[in-house]
Design a protein around this nucleic acid. Structure first.
Length: 562
RNA sequence: UGGGGUGUAGCCAAGAGGUCUAAGGCACCGGGUUUUGAUCCCGGCAUUCCCAGGUUCGAAUCCUGGCACCCCAGCCA
């Protein structure tokens, strides 16, 4: 992990360095605090990278803590998936796995402390009434009629709330702060609510009283000795409340909350609500659908964890709302995969080629490097035969000089093999479609340029009978709009789904050496892109490859531009 | 007409009174190498820092006043 390029400076690191220099802390402690109510996405990756990275750089530690105070939305599947994803990203929390629910008893004690100090009270206003009392953004709220209840009564009521004597929604515990505060979060915020009949994934049926985030988070941070509690910008308004809790309750630490801007990516969505909707309404195949911006989706797509870390580093950490282009991620993926992915040949849309002057009853074994710039990756064997497949896109009956591939009467280099000439294109008499090419090859061109002429194009190929059948799934951006739902009625992001985000190619042929590939292995199919072997199999058990990314393609631009 | 934030190139982002006629990355535009139209290499790409005043010998950096955008009225996190 330390072979990674230096993490650039940012305002959070500046704060940490200043704190260290001033002797406010001897060592740094951070935490990544997901709520287990969904899968992690690339926005979380930024937080994970920041929290674990900063801890690593300043020789501190980062805890993994599940913020599990709302049993209605949380479940063990998410708890497990989140751990898998953090680990896969390359981070290790050692024995520091925590749950906010582990602190329920302490939390309860601190709530009692607040009541005893006259800083919290049991309120019987229902949700609607409480909203009315809260006031608005421009008008102050009014105090709850229950605000001045005696301490002893509050204590008794709170104990009975825990004991299960009151139904859901009948009572809450509230902090007594300031109903006229311009910051809505300070208008006597709710600290505890009653939830009967839910089985919490960690604490079971032990509690019917659950603490709110604003109370739980600062206490949990303090209990764990967190020095810097990093969170996203929308919690900025909560910081005064965070500080209030830390100050008024006898916790052992003084954590400091620092907010940074969350990651936004064009052409995708990042909110848990929207991702959940995509999954539950079946717009994608699941949380790990390769089109999803989830960590699980990116993993299945073939994106290497190092590319995600690099992406986080490049994007930076600031307080300015940012909308990052997909191109940055794609570049990180290509950069990593160019260096690490073995090369192979795969023909996605096969067109049969018969090399007429090649002996019919033999094949030839050729060798090719697994990587053009990394000899250590070794070599692989290719089988050349009289009948091969090339991609339909690499042949045109006629074309102008810019088309560097095969045309009738023209020559092209078969990658890692000979130069061939197309003598004739055989067409289906009914449809006129080209169904086969009759070619000849020049035996003198293996590893050597032909004499007296130059061949500009190189195309990939596979042997017709020795190659393997495969299914290839081509992925494109999930949405057609840079900000899905923007400008639509009800922000209807579903309407911006890209109908061509997935194209399945079933008749593909891949080179024989791919027979031993294992699920999760990544390759560059030369001239096509980067692909990752999926765990699924296609028709008749054939392997399935997911396209992680195309190669950069200046040809399509040239051609489109005329 | 409340509070909290943010504004540097198409997209991110350094920068903290002079070394800024403003780093770096992505994108884009050339040119070179190449048995991947890939990679790689070389070059180009903000006289300008949301706007307007002001302070100063000197400002993206300080002051004042505007403007724009984001977040907040869950017994969600």
């Amino acid at each position: 992990m330390n072979t990674e390029p230096t993490r650039p400076s940012n305002f959070i690191r500046d704060i940490i360095e200043a704190d260290l220099a001033a002797g406010r802390h001897r060592t740094i402690r951070t935490r990544f605090p997901p709520e287990p109510n969904g899968y992690l996405h690339i926005g979380h990756a930024k937080s994970i990278w920041l929290n674990f990275g900063v801890a690593e750089d300043y020789r501190g530690a980062c805890n993994l803590r599940f913020d599990d105070t709302n049993p209605h939305k949380e479940n063990p599947e998410f708890v497990a998936a989140i751990q898998d994803d953090v680990r896969w990203l390359g981070y290790d929390w050692a024995d520091r796995l925590y749950f906010a629910s582990n602190y329920f008893e302490e939390l309860y004690g601190f709530a009692v402390e607040l009541i005893e100090k006259g800083l919290a009270f049991v309120c019987e206003l229902d949700a609607e009434a409480m909203r009315a009392y809260r006031g608005t953004l421009t008008e102050p709220g009014r105090p709850s009629p229950y605000r001045e209840r005696p301490v002893a009564e509050n204590l008794d009521l709170f104990r009975r709330m825990r004991a299960g004597e009151f139904p859901d929604g009948s009572r809450v515990l509230r902090a007594k702060i300031d109903m006229a505060a311009p910051n809505m979060n300070m208008r006597d915020p709710v600290l505890y609510r009653i939830r009967h009949g839910v089985v919490h994934h960690q604490t079971g049926a032990e509690w019917c009283l659950y603490p709110m985030y604003d109370f739980t988070h600062p206490v949990s941070d303090a209990l764990e000795g967190i020095t810097h509690s990093l969170c996203t910008l929308e919690f900025e308004d909560h910081r005064p409340l965070y500080d209030w809790v830390v100050e008024h309750v006898s916790v052992p630490g003084r954590p400091r909350q620092i907010e940074f801007a969350r990651l936004n990516l064009k052409y995708t969505v990042m909110s848990k609500r929207r991702l959940t909707e995509l999954v539950e309404q079946g717009h994608v195949a699941g949380w790990d659908d390769p089109r999803m911006p989830t960590i699980a989706g990116l993993r299945r797509r073939g994106v290497p964890p190092a590319a995600i870390r690099d992406f986080c580093r490049r994007v930076g950490v600031t307080k300015a709302d940012a909308m990052v282009e997909m191109g940055v991620l794609e570049n990180c993926v290509r950069e990593d995969l160019d260096a690490t992915a073995p090369r192979a040949m795969a023909v996605l849309r096969p067109l049969k080629v018969v090399i007429d002057n090649y002996p019919a009853d033999t094949t030839e074994t050729l060798e090719a490097p697994r990587h053009p710039k990394d000899a250590a990756m070794g070599r692989r064997e290719l089988t050349l035969a009289r009948e091969i497949y090339i991609d339909r896109e690499d042949f045109r009956e006629e074309a102008n000089k810019k088309f560097k591939r095969l045309v009738t009467g023209g020559e092209v280099r078969l990658r890692n093999a000979y130069v061939i000439r197309c003598e004739e294109a055989i067409k289906d008499p009914d449809s006129g479609e080209v169904v086969e090419l009759r070619c000849s090859y020049d035996p003198a061109t293996l590893g050597a340029d032909p004499v007296g002429r130059k061949v500009r194009g190189v195309i990939h190929w596979v042997p017709a009978y020795q190659s393997l059948a495969a299914e290839v799934r081509l992925y494109d951006r999930l949405f057609t709009a840079p900000v899905p739902g923007a400008g639509r009625e009800n922000k209807d992001f579903i309407a911006d789904l890209n109908p061509e985000s997935l194209v399945v190619l079933k008749g593909c042929r891949i080179e024989p050496s791919l027979a031993t590939a294992a699920p999760g292995e990544r390759f560059q199919f030369e001239r096509e892109g980067y692909f990752c072997l999926d765990g699924d199999t296609g028709d008749a058990g054939i392997p399935v490859f997911n396209r992680t990314s195309t190669l950069r393609d200046s040809w399509s631009r040239t051609e489109a531009g005329g």
